[in-house]
Computed example of a mutant assay.
Amino acid sequence: MTLEEYKARYGGQNHVAPGWDAIDASLRALYGDQKPQHCGTIIKHFLGGRDPIDGISTYQSDAGGAAHLHFCTYGFSALYYDEEAVGQDFSRFGFELTFRLKPSQEDHEPPIWVCNLIQNIARYVFESGKWFEEGHWIPANGPIRADAQTDIVGLMFVHDPQLPAMETPHGRVEFLQMVGLTSSEVADLMAKRRTTTEIAATLSKADPYLVTDLARSGA
């Protein structure tokens, strides 16, 4: 459907969610009929809710031969039809976040701590107006999972290897995957001894899908 066709069909019906539908379509192309477990907000952010991200879906993935959980956000990009935003180069912040996690024995359901982590990152983005791009990284100022003994204390951002960028009526959206960093990797980045590109290249030799394992430590 062209931009003009979309505008003619839906006009100003703000309840229509072309951004949400586009994310669903990308995930459906990857996972087919698999029904994800979804963590949604009770009060949407645009209605005054505290959490900026309206939803996070979790899929079971075996990409690379290693079973893991694959999370995807709904809300960094424009989800609901907005006449003023139609035709922009980028949809709101221009990305959605994904995260691949090797589950622990305690993780019988999609780990709520991941949803909390993502919402905290979203608050920073929405409040500061700053966004992430491939190659960016952030320290977590402690373990990314507060109730676990883990050396994963930072995150870097890469393009999700299975979800290509997409065009929506509101503009382009990229899928940026968060990848856990150890304390030594964070130290290297702070000291500029290595770049995120170099770290990702090293990690991808063992795992091209860059699944975060909370048990990982060292260089």
Rank of each mutant, 00 (worst) to 15 (best):
160 D>C: 11
96 E>T: 07
162 Q>E: 14
103 P>Y: 02
123 R>M: 11
125 V>D: 02
76 F>Y: 12
170 H>A: 11
126 F>W: 08
138 I>P: 01
158 V>Q: 06
131 W>H: 13
91 S>A: 10
93 F>C: 03
121 I>K: 09
110 P>T: 05
84 E>T: 14
88 Q>F: 11
86 V>E: 09
144 I>Q: 03
101 L>P: 07
70 H>F: 14
172 R>L: 15
122 A>V: 02
119 Q>S: 09
136 H>N: 13
106 E>T: 12
129 G>F: 08
123 R>Q: 10
168 T>P: 10
176 L>R: 03
132 F>Q: 04
111 P>F: 07
177 Q>T: 11
172 R>Q: 14
111 P>D: 08
133 E>W: 07
85 A>I: 10
172 R>E: 14
114 V>A: 12
76 F>G: 02
98 T>A: 05
144 I>W: 00
143 P>C: 05
93 F>Q: 07
176 L>S: 02
103 P>W: 04
70 H>R: 13
161 P>V: 13
87 G>A: 06
117 L>M: 14
72 C>T: 13
72 C>Q: 07
150 T>C: 04
115 C>R: 08
155 L>W: 07
172 R>S: 14
169 P>Q: 09
104 S>Q: 15
143 P>W: 00
120 N>R: 14
87 G>L: 07
72 C>P: 00
159 H>V: 06
79 L>Q: 07
102 K>W: 08
68 H>K: 12
159 H>Y: 13
83 E>R: 14
175 F>Y: 10
151 D>V: 01
130 K>N: 13
115 C>E: 09
102 K>H: 12
162 Q>R: 15
156 M>W: 05
141 N>F: 11
100 R>E: 03
119 Q>V: 10
129 G>W: 04
98 T>D: 04
103 P>S: 07
142 G>Y: 02
144 I>E: 01
136 H>E: 00
116 N>W: 02
152 I>E: 03
161 P>T: 12
106 E>H: 08
162 Q>L: 15
82 D>I: 06
169 P>F: 06
160 D>M: 09
152 I>F: 06
69 L>Y: 13
98 T>I: 07
175 F>E: 01
130 K>S: 12
160 D>I: 03
106 E>Y: 06
98 T>R: 05
103 P>T: 06
95 F>Q: 00
144 I>N: 01
129 G>L: 08
92 R>W: 11
147 D>Q: 13
113 W>K: 06
87 G>N: 09
133 E>Y: 12
104 S>G: 15
159 H>G: 02
167 E>T: 14
122 A>D: 00
129 G>V: 08
77 S>A: 15
154 G>P: 09
169 P>C: 09
74 Y>H: 06
148 A>I: 13
82 D>L: 11
73 T>S: 13
173 V>A: 08
140 A>I: 04
115 C>K: 09
148 A>E: 12
138 I>F: 03
121 I>G: 00
73 T>K: 10
143 P>M: 02
95 F>P: 00
97 L>S: 10
158 V>L: 06
142 G>F: 03
87 G>Y: 03
163 L>D: 04
131 W>S: 15
157 F>R: 01
116 N>I: 09
98 T>W: 01
153 V>Q: 10
74 Y>L: 03
90 F>G: 00
80 Y>P: 00
109 E>I: 12
164 P>S: 13
141 N>G: 10
176 L>T: 04
167 E>A: 14
79 L>T: 00
140 A>V: 06
123 R>W: 08
132 F>Y: 14
165 A>P: 02
73 T>E: 08
115 C>A: 15
